[in-house]
């Protein structure tokens, strides 16, 4: 019996100590951590709101790839307006170093977000008429439109209309009548990445 009592006297405080430690970890220490990180995020958001601006992610063609620039613009909580501002930046080409990659005088006529989560871009016919590039230039232009959209809003795909109508192709190399994702997200292999024989 003495031996049993001795065990209880030694083990019971240890068990109690463990229970106290676990309780502290789950209910006090971990909660504190979360509260701290939430506060940090909250502060950042607060700063952004106070700053009254958002960053537009603009993608433009550069050789056989895309380059990204970020442009600060007035705060908006409407995703469509954010994309509208981003695409207007792309088409205006004002802040794009490689200006010649974008057809001139293109106007954004409208943006429609479908229930299929596809963003429909209605552009003026200058997008087609003033495009005089080769196949790679056409692919990169389509890719820059797609990447600019999906990096500024949650859209599953992008479809481009010219003057409100479905057009077969922008420059005679790639389809424009289908949503862009299937074309622009495929890996493009350039130069000696593959060998014959």
């Amino acid at each position: 019996m003495r031996k049993g009592k001795l065990i209880i006297v030694i083990v019971a405080p240890i068990v109690l100590l463990c229970v106290a430690a676990v309780t502290y970890y789950f209910f006090i220490w971990r909660d504190d951590g979360e509260t701290v990180s939430q506060n940090i995020v909250g502060r950042k958001e607060q700063e952004k709101i106070l700053d009254n601006s958002i960053e537009l992610k603009i993608f433009y063609p550069e050789g056989t790839g895309l380059k990204k620039i970020t442009i600060k613009t007035k705060q908006t909580f409407d995703a469509i307006k954010t994309v509208e501002a981003a695409l207007t930046e792309v088409f205006s080409g004002k802040n794009i170093p490689n200006r010649s990659a974008i057809p001139s005088d293109v106007k954004l006529l409208g943006l429609y977000y479908g229930i299929d989560k596809i963003l429909y871009i209605d552009a003026s016919n200058e997008l087609q008429r003033n495009f005089h590039g080769d196949a790679m230039a056409e692919l990169m232009l389509l890719k820059s439109i797609y990447e600019t959209v999906v990096n500024n809003m949650e859209a599953e795909d992008v479809k481009v209309l010219i003057n409100g109508t479905e057009t077969e192709s922008l420059g005679g190399h790639f389809y424009l009548k289908y949503p862009l994702k299937g074309i622009v997200t495929q890996e493009i292999v350039v130069d000696g990445s593959h060998k014959s024989g």
Partner: peptide
């Protein structure tokens, strides 16, 4: 000469060896 593999709809639909020369 530069070789490119890209999803070009015309040559993708050809039932024969097909290339586009630019």
């Amino acid at each position: 000469v530069v070789y490119v593999e890209a999803p070009l709809p015309l040559i993708s639909a050809i039932r024969a060896p097909a290339i586009m020369i630019e």
